[in-house]
Amino acid sequence: MSDAHVALKGVTRVYQRAGQEPLEALGPIDLDLSAGEFFAVVGPSGCGKSTLLDVIAGLSQASAGTVSIEGKPVRGVVPESVGVVFQDDASFPWLTVEDNIAFGLNRQGMDAAETNRRVAQALALMGLNDFARAYPAQLSGGMRQRVCIARTLVLQPRLILLDEPFGALDQQTRLLMGDELLNLWRKTGATILLITHALDEAAMLSDRVGVMSARPGRFLEIVETGWPRGRDSTIVASPDFGRVTGRLWSLLRAESLKAMQYQTGAARP
């Protein structure tokens, strides 16, 4: 066992299909994330990025290989130290913003005083103070995603998995949400794994970017960005930023073309 926070060894995911040959969606993947690292995964559409996240979270089972978090193997159950934020809006429309944020704490049976303290803190941190009593349907998509992030943060996870959390937002909002995410990352000291299809987002936010191939997804290369811990979205203006995104795209271009041909049926994996 390595002493990495998250360790994947030879992980694959194969979907058995009735009457057809099995679909190899992922892997084999080997990956070590060190504690407190910000790691992003980019790859062409349909390459298995989200499958990778589901396998790490314990939402789906690896067909082969092992996933371990803090030295303990992950098998079919989401470990308590893990928080997940999805691309689709997962706020509960029947609960107010504060009740949404308190949901996980209430499930754990946390006492009221501590729950209120953590919820108030998360509301302030995510700029949701004025909307504590609002219902999700009264908020914009970006605000609802903040609610989901806050709901994850109050549980104080040591590993946060983000599956294209800003995928449905416009470009400017994404940059600003990126800044906030960096702030949270520094304040909480958590390890973050971010799945995204946006190269600039991956390049701006992370310490390392894993570039995945077309299906079945595996890592072509892991690019080190070399940013300081105190970075923010202004680095998009620096020449180094252009160098990193350029490197990502040169790795991905051929793979994206392949993925597009799979979709139109012009080629098969």
């Binding site: 979270a57 939402l59 989401v78 308590e80 893990v82 997940v84 996980g104 499930r107």
Partner: peptide
């Protein structure tokens, strides 16, 4: 999926 993340 969210319910599973909360181990419900």
């Amino acid at each position: 999926k969210t319910a599973r993340v909360f181990r419900m």
